[in-house]
Nucleic acid binder design. Structure first.
Lengths: 129, 129
DNA sequence: CTTGACCTTCCACTGTAGGGGAAGGTGCAC
DNA sequence: GTGCACCTTCCCCTACAGTGGAAGGTCAAG
């Protein structure tokens, strides 16, 4: 099948497919006699796998590593499990950071709600921050 | 004072100061006869304000708006308070998204911990994803 | 007189995941 | 024979907040 059909099947754009190829996530596909890229169901599976992995928040570089292991006939399971664990930690850390930031902003805002705008110190840029 | 001293005082780099100037957060400074940028305490205060506003998670574009209001002699308090409120909503939404993503990843990981690596379906890229 | 620490401008690059659009080739239907 | 949808490569652009480096000017100390 041609790139457009593969794109529709995987629910992405042809631009994205070419980008994935150039980024090393897809092997260079076969070509028809007129030079068009030629894909099969395995290609579409691969594209759908990439989508699922992205759903898990994995970066393309990580997904590329998984696919590369798979292509070299290693079973990537252990690697994937470890990656998911690291992903969980990273998420927990990021969520923690954002919650800390939220607390800071909430504090600023509490000050803001109490402040009288008419009492702003003209020598400061903003008494709220 | 010259740019290096201002940078040290505000705990940033000279590169960053020039970048802020070019981004419209700092007015073009005075110059000494030899062309060096010349700053004073007000400049340093402004730089420190930018830092504080960044601590509150505001983007440079938002900070620039606050500074611009201030420069036009409007009191930016109300604007800032509203911005902080919006910032809180944005943070809450982002935290929610990350928590949803965390749940997804945790689910994938639970599957991973249960799975027997020897039972991987060789026709799939990875049975965990 | 030269060394070193400053400063200037300008241009390019970082990472992420693609998107926009030009210029041209291919194949089918009408 | 021409219009249309599809394909090709190529290069540039997006947001964000800077960072790196080159080429050159300035100034005080030794």
């Amino acid at each position: 099948m041609r790139i457009g059909e593969a794109a529709t099947a995987a629910n992405i754009t042809t631009k994205t497919i070419r980008f994935y190829e150039q980024a090393g996530l897809l092997p260079p596909p076969g070509r028809t006699t007129n030079g068009y890229r030629s894909y099969n169901e395995i290609s579409v599976n691969r594209l759908q796998f990439i989508r699922r992995a992205q759903t898990a928040g994995l970066a393309l570089a990580q997904i590329r590593d998984i696919l590369r292991m798979r292509d070299e006939n290693h079973t990537p399971c252990a690697h994937v499990a470890e990656m998911l664990t690291r992903q969980l930690s990273a998420l927990d850390q990021r969520i923690g950071e954002l919650q800390a930031l939220r607390a800071t902003v909430a504090e600023f805002q509490a000050t803001a709600l109490e402040a009288d705008p008419n009492k702003c110190d003209p020598n400061r840029i903003c008494s709220l921050l």
